[in-house]
């Protein structure tokens, strides 16, 4: 679910039907439920988060002090936080790259298939339906150091797998699980984009003498670049926010914080560490990042509307 997955051109937002109703109270009744929920569960908590990010609570929760940006200042000097930040970027980039490139290859081939295309699609899309935490559970089981099937095979090559001890392996496992789950989504979008390219363009390329691989890189790939960009943002959002379940199930941020990505840290500092101010400040930073990503996406969609 691309939670930030929608954008509309500015002009279009103002759109209203040429003919419209002019009731005074009815439209208010209609938007009321959504607005009420938005205010209570979105706007109010978000402002609370901003407010709390300016507070420091003492160790016993007895008194709080308003400290302006001290929490933020602290975060940006905190090596653990900064490391987590860098790690999140690396994690997101790796997840996006792995899942998008595999999806692109699969979609590129699936687009060639005429008979059986739906069957292939059916068999490739179901990981979409699997919850991140379940994806994590499956992968952690496969890579269980003592029992798992893959460590068993890796052992043949003299490779010792233990993601409970090895931070790099833990990160790799989380990335693999996260990317695996997202392939289906990327595949669907790439396939849809490729199928919407007019056949005549490909045929013209063939007549011009471009071989299939060349056609793919010189015609198909540029034509679907809007989709690539769109997916890049969606995958970044996914990796940033929706992978909590995977980390929680697979590594719980460990070993030694090796897989503590930002979302996990917000949760951990807030609910486990009970550092409300610090957690709130982290939330605010995340919010700013989502807003940033939404704006990019928004911009991009605005441009795309003109196609």
């Amino acid at each position: 679910m691309g939670c930030a997955g929608f954008g509309v051109a500015e002009k279009e937002i103002a759109m209203l039907k040429r003919v419209h109703f002019n009731k005074t109270w009815l439209p208010f009744m209609l938007v009321a439920p959504q607005i009420a929920i938005t205010l209570i569960f979105f706007i109010w908590p978000a402002t609370q988060a901003v407010y709390q990010s300016f507070l420091i609570e003492d160790a016993f929760g007895l008194s709080t002090e308003f400290v302006w940006f001290e929490n933020f200042q602290y975060l940006f000097t905190d090596e653990i936080y900064l490391n987590s930040f860098g790690r999140t970027i690396f994690f997101s980039a790796a997840v996006a790259f792995i899942s998008m490139s595999s999806a692109l290859v699969l979609a590129g081939f699936a687009d060639r298939v005429i008979r059986g295309a739906t069957t292939y699609r059916t068999l490739l899309i179901w990981p979409y339906a699997i919850a991140p935490v379940l994806a994590g559970a499956l992968w952690v089981f496969m890579f269980n150091p003592t029992l798992g099937i893959l460590p068993y095979f890796l052992d043949f090559f003299g490779y010792d797998w233990n993601h409970y001890l090895n931070g790099g392996q833990a990160m790799l496992l989380v990335i693999l699980a996260a990317a695996w789950k997202q392939i289906a989504y990327n595949f669907l979008f790439y396939l849809a984009a490729m199928q919407s390219i007019p056949r005549s363009i490909i045929e013209a390329g063939a007549i011009d003498g471009a071989r299939p691989i060349r056609r793919f890189w010189t015609l198909v790939f540029p034509l679907i670049s809007p989709t690539t960009f769109f997916l890049l943002v969606i995958n970044a959002v996914y990796a940033f926010f929706e992978t909590f379940g995977i980390v929680h199930a697979v590594t719980q941020g460990g070993p030694a914080n090796a897989t503590t990505i930002l979302v996990y840290k917000v949760y951990n500092d807030g609910f486990v560490g009970l550092d409300l101010g610090g957690s709130a400040a982290q939330s605010v930073i995340l919010m700013i990042m989502v807003i940033f990503m939404t704006i990019i996406q928004f911009r991009f969609l605005e441009r795309k509307v003109q196609y």
Partner: peptide
Amino acid sequence: ITLMLPVEVRILPTYEVV
């Protein structure tokens, strides 16, 4: 605006409201 506020980023205060 709700587009920009996934539950993960406002988790604690939302929990308090609930």
